[in-house]
Design a protein around this nucleic acid. Structure first.
Lengths: 226, 226
DNA sequence: CGATCAATTGACTTAGCTCAAAGCATGTGG
DNA sequence: CCACATGCTTTGAGCTAAGTCAATTGATCG
């Protein structure tokens, strides 16, 4: 429950709450391509203990086409994801690597969190932040070129998976090109071309298909317009 | 405080809270182009009593260019907006019409809301919903054509300003073409061209520059891929 | 060692951007 | 009241980034 504790600047009694949370949650171990069981009766919160996953919008028949089966984003160890049940905006969480998660019903979570006002407050703050970040990303997607999006994606991955915000680092890309393309609103071909462009510009090297070396994160960020 | 009450399915004692909120809040009356005073010391929540406004990201010198001074969205009577102070992702709320708002510090709000767990819970739910909607919109922006975005924008406006989700209706567009363009990640020219295209398709008529008639919202939505 | 699937590369098309001009309001001063 | 200036909006003519279609290469796995 590190993420919860991290969300609270001064940890005032959250450890106890975190333990209570673990008590109501269920552990799941998943292999690549398997899905975190989708709730039917109520909303769930998922804490990702380790591994990488993609959040995909449901592909209901009666859903607007552009919203069907698209990648909403990627999640990594430490993240908390809310999985809402169907009517509102259903989504499923699919493992990209070996994945360990703890799931619990949102209602039960709220019942417990309510006991600790600071806790609930922290979660609210966290979700408002999340909203702000998503908004920012929306603007980017609306105004950035393909190259900027890819550069930004790689810089973001470096930060989220290795905590690297500067200098050089090597990151693993557990998702396919097609997943990347979809999440950025691009095509596979364009993603591929941008990778080779960045390679030519010496901003990345690709030792293997799923590994990318970022020799200069700062320039990469600049390239992304950040 | 209708919006707050609306957020709670069964109103259990929120009216009292709403009154308390009004007590800690400050009323502001603004004319077009004026701004809701930007907080420097803490985050603020703004309840829009009446009128229309645009939420604009700050244009700090040291901010990534694509995030500078862009339209994050439009807000109307009944909406609640969070204005975060600088470091996180500052934004300002600028009146498009005569605007009446009540502002209060987020901290004070949380102090009061905490007393009523159901209330805080409702707000959390509301903000999670908001996150989901923003995510959906992000996908759309990444995958929709100019025509779909404009059609979707108009349908959305009809729903938010007159509550029309079907049939026909006439809406006012208090914002400029350039505001619309920016919020959708398009250029003014493209917006203008799409308006004339929709006019040719008999999906809209424009009695005046700032007024649009939607004779068939259902087809419009279909056009938007919704 | 093929067979299969993902990724890359190439040739072509096109939606939307850029640049530029013209149309239309609204307001101001003579 | 008109002339003119100013600021939005519309329209037009290329141009370019990214999408589409199609072929090739490269990995992985029975």
């Amino acid at each position: 429950m590190d993420a919860f504790r991290a969300a609270v600047p001064q940890d005032h009694g959250c450890k106890a709450v975190a333990n209570r949370l673990c008590a109501i949650g269920t552990y799941h171990g998943l292999r690549p391509d398997e899905e975190v069981p989708t709730p039917t009766r109520q909303d769930y919160l998922v804490y990702i203990a380790s591994g990488a996953a993609k959040l995909v919008s449901l592909e209901d028949r009666d859903r607007p086409v552009p919203l069907r089966g698209h990648i909403l984003g990627f999640q990594f160890g430490g993240d908390i994801v809310s999985i809402l049940r169907k009517p509102q905006g259903g989504s499923r969480l699919q493992a990209l690597t070996e994945l360990q998660v703890i799931t619990f019903a949102a209602d039960e979570f709220l019942d417990i969190a309510q006991a600790d006002p600071g806790m609930l407050r922290a979660v609210l703050t966290k979700s408002l932040d999340s909203l702000q970040r998503t908004r920012a990303r929306m603007i980017l997607i609306g105004h950035q070129t393909a190259r900027q999006r890819i550069a930004g994606f790689l810089a973001n991955m470096a930060e989220r998976t290795c905590g690297c915000i500067s200098g050089s680092c090597e990151i693993a890309l557990p998702m396919s090109r097609s997943d990347i393309a979809d999440s950025l609103g691009l095509t596979i071909e364009t993603v591929s071309r941008q990778f080779t462009e960045l390679r030519k510009s010496r901003l990345i090297t690709t030792p293997s298909r799923a590994v990318v070396n970022l020799p200069d994160i700062d320039t990469l960020k600049q390239e992304a317009g950040l």
